[in-house]
Nucleic acid binder design. Structure first.
Length: 579
RNA sequence: GGACCUGUGGUGCAGCUCGGAGUGCACGCCGCCCUGUCAAGGCGGAGGUCGCGGGUUCAAAUCCCGUCAGGUCCGCCA
């Protein structure tokens, strides 16, 4: 028998570890009073709860404990009498008898019930997070997270990666997401920032000869929060030298599949790969959810020279909505508004009937066109077909968004479908000055076949950037980095960054690259999101011990808060009135 | 910056459309009873600024305006 790590000087066992194997032994357990059931002055039952679960203690007589009192109970492990076994409890066959109950701490009645009989308002849970954490679901989620972390570390270690910590107080590099700013006490009017990612630091580690680096890193971004976004989040961050894209995909796959195995008990066989162009074409998003169909169909050829004025556009994209014919007119109107909100000129809908289509546009359709609509994605009577006619990418994006809104299963449902999305475009759109905007970051290596296009058609240049997607969630992204000064200058030039600007912002990185930078590539993915999906949670707050609300507040500590004038003065800060 | 949803004893809800006494349900809490319960059971009790402010009205939880908090989303997140 292995060493009993559960035993301490106060207890012999965790509550849920008590079993028929211990019958006759005298044991001490420690925990919280989960429930008390009194039967007069001769008999009482107390459920003792610790992180493992619950054990029933039988008390001959009365005992003055209330819910959530912290107690140490010493009793004899006994089989429950005939007919009183509780199948719902893992410890339901046994109980502690002849109990001695010591009160280690009393407790007030908690502000909400800690069982899972009702959903408690998240505001109340967050205000008393330390109580919320006692709940079984939160215990499960955070312990799952710990297991995933351990699996990731083991996988990286096994693959020869070296864990290196990088600074939290870093230099501002105005680019990308908004940074959290930390005022310097010793340097008047100057600031550190908290890293939005260890991107530059890890590239410097490559120059420094750590050819395989990883870190479970906290990243901070001062951007608006969402269900899958907190100010601070945790990434498995990695970078390797003398590698190409395929090597990175393999390293990350190993780590993610190990984590999946630990979390779900099943190891997915492979991770599919899809180009960005294919993802946009078939799913209308760069993070396709492969758990369900409703793929986008192209009807552009069908509607060449059509009578339907609304369909005189470069691209006609269609999508079948199973059972969508039952949508009410007001629902369809709302969908149309949604499509317009996403930038489309409109949304055409066709209820598929047994002998045709039901649509305001029906009378404008040729037989050929009507047939094509009825065949979209093997449509059946009762289905709905939605069509967006617009520029290619916009048509894809609008239908892609509707696909997610109409078809996404709950996070807890369905298989885990991982997919690598590769060959992202190097640039996405133009900024106000007409310069291309980097899709990933400015150190991303262009696709080797597209380098000539940099000067002539930058928006057509593919990059060696890739995302890992799971069930429609972007887990993370990475790229092959530029390690050659000539290509880096060319990219900066395309982005409209002058050499002076580049020197000012990234001088220390460019300087480092002068001394022999190995070819390198890397990746980073969000552990909060991965664990949320493993846990079947729609919201990453459920897998974070102390999360913030959507407005960035911590309801428990009250942060953010003002600080005393003395402290402000020390930091050379002065509040601006009315700002 | 914007859209939508929510806010009623400690907790979860109903009441709001069609204004009429803080009305109801479940859990929890407090007291008493109860020797095999485990969502224990029975009896009794306490507990409310209907988020906040203003307006309309004889009268507002209910209608209107504003505001705050929480949530979902758009923008934003290289």
């Amino acid at each position: 028998m292995s060493t009993n790590y559960e035993a301490t000087s106060l207890r012999d066992s965790l509550c849920a570890s008590v079993s028929v194997a211990h019958v006759g032994q005298r044991l001490a357990v420690c925990g919280w009073v989960a429930k008390r059931r009194e039967h007069g002055e001769h008999l009482a039952f107390i459920d003792i709860r610790d992180r493992s679960g619950v054990i029933q203690a039988v008390v001959d007589g009365t005992v003055d404990v209330r819910n959530e009192y912290v107690v140490r109970v010493t009793g004899t492990v006994s089989r429950r009498p005939e007919g009183t076994v509780n199948d719902k409890l893992t410890t339901g066959e046994v109980e502690l008898t002849e109990c001695m109950v010591e009160i280690l701490a009393t407790a007030e009645a908690p502000p909400f019930q800690l069982d899972d009989r009702v959903d408690i308002d998240e505001q109340v849970r967050l205000r008393h997070r330390y109580l919320d954490l006692r709940r079984e679901q939160m215990q499960k989620n955070l312990r799952l997270r710990a297991k995933v972390n351990a699996a990731l570390r083991a996988a990286m270690d096994r693959q020869g990666f070296c864990e290196v910590e990088t600074p939290l107080l870093w230099a501002p590099t105005p680019e990308g997401s908004r940074e959290f700013v930390v005022p310097s006490r010793l340097h008047h009017g100057e600031f550190y920032v908290l890293p939005q990612s260890p991107q530059i630091a890890k590239q410097l580690l490559m120059v420094g000869g750590f050819d395989r680096y990883y870190q479970i890193a906290r990243c901070m971004r001062d951007e608006d929060l969402r269900a899958d976004r907190q100010f601070e989040f945790t990434q498995l961050d990695l970078e390797a030298s003398f590698v190409s894209q395929i090597d990175i995909l393999e390293f990350v796959s190993q780590a993610v599949l190990d984590a999946a195995e630990v979390a779900t008990g099943e190891r997915p066989s492979t991770i599919d790969t899809m180009t960005w162009a294919e993802a946009m074409n078939r799913y209308g998003v760069d993070k396709p959810d492969l758990r369900f169909g409703m793929t986008l169909q192209d009807l552009s050829d069908v509607f060449v020279g059509t009578e339907v004025k609304a369909f005189s556009a470069p691209t006609i994209k269609a999508m079948r909505v199973p059972q969508g014919a039952e949508f009410t007119r007001s629902r369809l109107d709302a969908l149309t508004d949604r499509a317009k909100g996403l930038g489309a000129k409109g949304l055409a809908w066709f209820r598929i009937t047994a002998d045709g289509v039901d649509s305001p546009l029906d009378r404008f359709l040729s037989d050929h066109e009507r047939d094509a609509i009825r065949r979209v994605d093997d449509a059946q009577p009762g289905d709905l077909v939605l069509i967006v006619a617009d520029d290619y990418l916009l048509a894809c994006k609008v239908l892609g968004a509707l696909r997610v809104e109409l078809g996404s299963p709950p996070v807890s449902q369905g298989p885990h479908r991982y997919v690598w999305v590769t060959e992202f475009p190097m640039y996405e759109g133009l900024d106000d000055d007409g310069n291309p905007v980097a899709a990933h970051h400015p150190f991303t290596m262009p696709h080797p076949d597209d380098i000539e296009l940099m000067a002539t058609d930058p928006l057509a240049v593919r990059s060696q950037a890739y995302d890992l997607v799971l069930n429609g969630w972007e887990l993370g992204s990475g790229s092959v980095r530029i390690h050659r000064a000539d290509i880096q200058s060319q990219v900066f030039a395309t982005l409209g960054i002058t050499p002076e600007e580049a020197e000012n912002r990234f001088g220390f990185l460019l300087g480092a690259f002068k001394y022999g930078a190995p070819p390198h590539a890397g990746f980073a993915f969000g552990i909060d999101r991965l664990v949320a999906i493993f846990a079947g949670e729609e919201n990453i707050r459920e897998v974070i011990a102390f999360p913030k609300t959507q407005s960035g507040a911590d309801l428990m500590t009250g942060a953010p808060k003002s600080i005393p004038d003395k402290q402000l003065k020390e930091l050379h800060l002065k509040p601006v009135k009315g700002a």
